[in-house]
Design a protein around this nucleic acid. Structure first.
Lengths: 202, 202
DNA sequence: TGGATAAGTTAGTAACCAGTTACTATCTTT
DNA sequence: AAAGATAGTAACTGGTTACTAACTTATCCA
């Protein structure tokens, strides 16, 4: 067990900073997270942050990188263990829900970045993440069609949008209810509807 | 034709302010809209805003009120003209898509407010709006089940979440593509999947 | 063990923000 | 056309923000 120490090696401090931002994002509006708030949560002064990151934007970039790596690895692992394309979609879905339920700040941060005005580096990273995610979905959906599990008449890219939207809907509902665990309960129910929507007629 | 005048009656100025905020939200991060930016867009000085609104929060509240009135009226009208519950759902969907495509800043503002930390008055208004919207959906879905149009085995509240999520997915995709019109093209395709998901087996 | 160095502190800065105030221009009414 | 009411201006305030620089302390290894 490593108890939180004041002095940490640079790399460790960067990691802790990223995790702190994700925790804070679960509690408050991500766009209102200040460098002072991050430092306070870590038990540091605000200036110390800038020993490890050149700017606030660089922190956000690192956070999104952290998320992209873990999320994609997780869903890839979930999908690879599934016996069929449709089972892979379901495993991805549940794995993704579990991920955002564990880190409720993450979808909020990503969506917040997407709303930014210009083409900031963090925004481009979010775009890339979602595009990679969509590509994986698209491939699985096409495979599912070939395997006879999914209906060949549905639009594959629309089905990918629908998949992501389904997760978004659950996230939004948990924001309204203020209850993250509810998401886990409702996930199977909404996925059942999605499966009916894209699945081949029996 | 009333050309934009510098001196406007108070009520007209409040209306113009609301519309200006909605326009600005389409261009930039809603949480970064300043009172100075609103004033500049109207050709006024920043201080003038506070002749008509006691605070910035009051502006946001008025905007959400504006949205709630129009959106609910629109979908009610769309639903009431439909011959069946399922047709009503489709009409609501298309009408909603048309609304957000015309005012792309609106979904971003609503979602942004939902992300707020505490229980601000604007946030509560957004919650109320979505709850009212969900109730209408729930009722229509139950009606659809009774009419034999929708599958009785699906979870009605999950189907309502899915409906809203479907719209969210389209909004998100338009943010990534930076193209609002694409949403109108893809709307029928994703709704087709939703209909298959909730519809009764043929 | 002592000194180099990495990590953190303190005390700033300029820019920006919402909101206020004393004043002025414009409209309306009689 | 005078007077009161309404709408807008200019300059400001206190507070907050990201970021910086000079100084201090902890850690590690020769």
């Amino acid at each position: 067990m490593t108890r939180p120490s004041r002095h940490l090696p640079a790399e460790k401090r960067r990691e802790v900073t990223i995790e702190t931002v994700i925790k804070l994002a679960a509690e408050q509006n991500p766009s209102e997270i200040t460098t002072a708030a991050i430092a306070k949560r870590m038990g540091l002064t605000q200036g110390a942050i800038f020993r490890h990151f050149p700017s606030k934007e660089a922190i956000l970039q690192s956070v999104i990188e952290w998320v992209a790596e873990r999320l994609l690895a997780r869903i890839d692992k979930a999908a690879s263990g599934a016996p069929s394309p449709l089972a892979a979609l379901e495993a991805m879905f549940m794995s993704h829900i579990d991920f955002v339920a564990t880190h409720p700040g993450i979808p909020r941060m990503l969506f917040g970045e997407l709303q930014r005005a210009g083409e900031t580096p963090p925004k481009r990273m979010v775009k890339t993440l979602i595009q990679r995610y969509s590509e994986r979905l698209y491939r699985l959906i096409e495979e599912g069609k070939r395997a006879g599990e999914l209906d060949v008449d549905i639009d594959s890219s629309a089905a990918a949008i629908q998949f992501i939207g389904t997760i978004q809907g659950l996230v939004m509902q948990s924001l309204i209810a203020g209850d993250i665990e509810r998401m886990r309960e409702q996930a199977p129910k909404v996925f059942a509807i999605y499966r009916r929507g894209v699945g081949a007629a029996p």
